[in-house]
Amino acid sequence: MGVLSRSELVFVLTVLAVLLILLIFFVIPRAGGGAFVVAFSDRGDINGDGKGEYIDGLDNLRIGDRGNLFMAQLSGETSRYVYIRFEDMSWRDEDLKPVDPQLPSSQYQLVLMIYLHGATLRTMDVGLSYEPSIWIVAVDTGQNASYGLLRSPVELSDVRFFTLNSTPATPPPQLYNVGYAHFTRVEENRWVFEADAWFLLLKGTEEYYVKLSFETDIEYRKL
């Protein structure tokens, strides 16, 4: 069996991550007494659909945390979506040369996964920003296609069921070190993820880098 290429490896890891997390979220029941709520800022490249907040358990959405991982599954049998402004982003090819946008600005379903290194949502210090690994899957239901966006302070080839080792970042340092991606616990039951940073983008077997800016507000509300 041949060695997987970088794009094939990242694609396989992304698919396995999504399948594993969906299995965990559907098999393990929700914690009682509350629900996670997600909202996207109107500023930036990922915006909401104008229908209000995304709430766990409504509209067939699943949002929650398991250990070091937070996940918002805004995809599947749901009418909800986000608007992603791909045409407003800066794009680079594999050689880091500027290229025209390769995807249209449009409605997409979304899976957002945030992996915290050395902390969980429940153990994060209030006011302290963390640098997580981020997996985003944008699903174009009209084209029956999905695209992966990834940013991690460690090399994705060293992922072992979300046990990550300290190795080079993705995207490469000359892009990774430009901008920021921070996850902050601002109150006991409220977190904010802010990014203005380069991500690796996978479009089939093609690899690109995009400068993605967005802000997500996450809240756990007791029912």
Results as ranks from 00 to 15, higher is better:
Met71Trp: 01
Glu215Ala: 09
Trp91Leu: 05
Leu112Pro: 01
Asp217Ser: 14
Pro104Trp: 01
Arg190His: 10
Gly52Ile: 04
Met113Gly: 04
Val137Gly: 00
Arg80His: 02
Gly57Leu: 02
Leu16Val: 11
Tyr81Ala: 01
Asn68Phe: 02
Leu19Tyr: 02
Ala145Val: 10
Leu156Cys: 09
Thr216His: 00
Ala35Glu: 07
Tyr108Glu: 07
Pro172Lys: 08
Ile21Asn: 12
Pro104Gln: 05
Val99Ala: 00
Tyr180Ala: 03
Arg151Gln: 13
Phe162His: 05
Arg221Pro: 01
Leu23Asn: 12
Ala31Phe: 05
Ile46His: 03
Ala181His: 11
Leu16His: 07
Asn60Ala: 14
Leu9Lys: 10
Val154Ala: 13
Val10Gln: 06
Ile84Lys: 05
Leu223Pro: 00
Arg30Glu: 13
Thr123Ala: 04
Arg85Glu: 06
Gln102Ile: 13
Met89Gln: 07
Met113Ala: 12
Asp158Pro: 01
Leu58Phe: 05
Gly2Glu: 14
Leu22Phe: 05
Met89Trp: 04
Tyr130Gln: 07
Thr123Arg: 13
Tyr147Phe: 15
Ile84Arg: 04
Asp59Cys: 07
Tyr176Lys: 07
Thr141Pro: 02
Leu112Gln: 11
Lys211Arg: 13
His117Asn: 06
Tyr130Arg: 08
Val10Arg: 12
Leu9Trp: 07
Leu96Phe: 08
Ala197Val: 03
Pro172Glu: 08
Leu164Ser: 01
Leu116Thr: 07
Thr163Asn: 14
Asp45Val: 12
Ser133Ala: 07
Arg30Leu: 09
Phe214His: 12
Leu103Ser: 03
Thr123Leu: 03
Glu194Asp: 15
Ser7Ala: 11
Val159Met: 14
Leu121Asp: 03
Phe193Gly: 02
Arg85Ile: 00
Tyr108Pro: 04
His182Asp: 13
Gly57Phe: 01
Ile55Val: 15
Glu219Ala: 05
Lys203Ala: 11
Tyr208Leu: 10
Phe214Ser: 08
Pro104Ile: 03
Leu202His: 03
Trp198Asn: 04
Tyr209Gly: 06
Ser133Gly: 03
Leu110Gly: 04
Asp158Thr: 15
Leu9Gln: 11
Phe40Tyr: 14
Arg92Cys: 02
Arg151His: 08
Ser41Gly: 03
Ile136Lys: 08
Asp93Arg: 06
Leu23Arg: 10
Phe161Ser: 12
Trp135Thr: 12
Ser90Pro: 00
Lys211Ala: 04
Val210Ile: 15
Gly118Gln: 02
Tyr108Trp: 07
Leu58Val: 08
Asn47Met: 13
Asp59Leu: 05
Val10Tyr: 12
Met113Pro: 00
Phe70Ile: 01
Ser152Leu: 01
Ser213Ile: 04
